[in-house]
């Protein structure tokens, strides 16, 4: 579901292949671990980067997530559910990192992202995202940047789909409010 698509295999073949790798990982097969890392690293790293807005920290989180997933593979009941299991671990690690960060109120006054450069927009967006709570920020990033479905977000964050909807609504509203605050001339 969350894995990177292979151009040569059908989705069912990809799932079957992954299941075989997971079975091998349970026996400590390092070659199978490498295959799983190769399949998921890109999307996992991108998701972590967009959540944390720091590629170095995201690499650490992704690495930690893979290691934890392999270490706790015995906790995975269904071999088909590895990608969800891995993303859940990674998201939880990112959440912990976000929570442990000291709150830094963003200085966004006087910037004009609508007219500014791409880099300036990125800086403003990062500051606005920092103002959101970890839960709202995560939901917004997974939906808007990572294009996760509601079901995928619910599975990853281990919350009901209704909670995802309400969080997403709140996150969009708050982000919009902060966006207007940062761009009073744009209203």
């Amino acid at each position: 579901m969350l894995s990177q698509a292979s151009p040569l295999l059908s989705p069912s073949e990809i799932a079957a292949e992954e299941r075989r790798w997971v079975v091998r990982v349970r026996t400590g097969d390092e070659a199978a671990m490498t295959l799983l890392v190769g399949r998921h690293r890109r999307r996992l790293l991108r998701a972590a980067s967009n959540i944390l807005r720091d590629t170095h920290e995201a690499e650490d989180a992704a690495q930690e997530a893979f290691l934890k997933a392999f270490r706790e593979i015995h906790k995975l009941r269904d071999d088909k559910a590895f990608s969800g299991f891995l993303y859940r671990i990674c998201i939880r690690l990112c959440m912990d990192r976000l929570r442990s960060r000291k709150s830094q109120p963003g200085i966004v006054e006087g910037t004009s992202p609508s007219r500014g450069t791409e880099v300036e927009t990125k800086v403003v967006v990062e500051k606005l995202l920092e103002k959101l709570s970890p839960e709202l920020r995560l939901t917004l990033v997974l939906r808007e940047m990572e294009q996760f479905s509601y079901d995928e977000i619910a599975e990853t964050m281990e919350v009901p789909v209704g909670t995802v909807r309400s969080r997403l609504h709140a996150a969009r509203e708050k982000f919009r409010e902060y966006w207007i605050e940062a761009n009073p001339e744009a209203v």
Binding site: E30, M33, T34, V37, G38, R41, R42, L45, R46, S49, N50, R53, T55, A58, E59, A62, Q63, F66, L67, P113, S114, E118, T121, K122, V124, V125, E126, L140, E144, M145, R172, F175, R176, W179, I180, A186, V187
Partner: peptide, 27 residues
């Protein structure tokens, strides 16, 4: 305004370079 805010959010998406180094480090 919402469209503008969401568009800016999407345009700020980070596309990190996923190198084999990560794989090596993990293993």
């Amino acid at each position: 305004m919402m469209d503008d805010a969401m568009a800016s959010l999407r345009s700020s998406r980070i596309e990190p370079e996923s190198t084999a180094e990560l794989e090596i480090n993990i293993m």
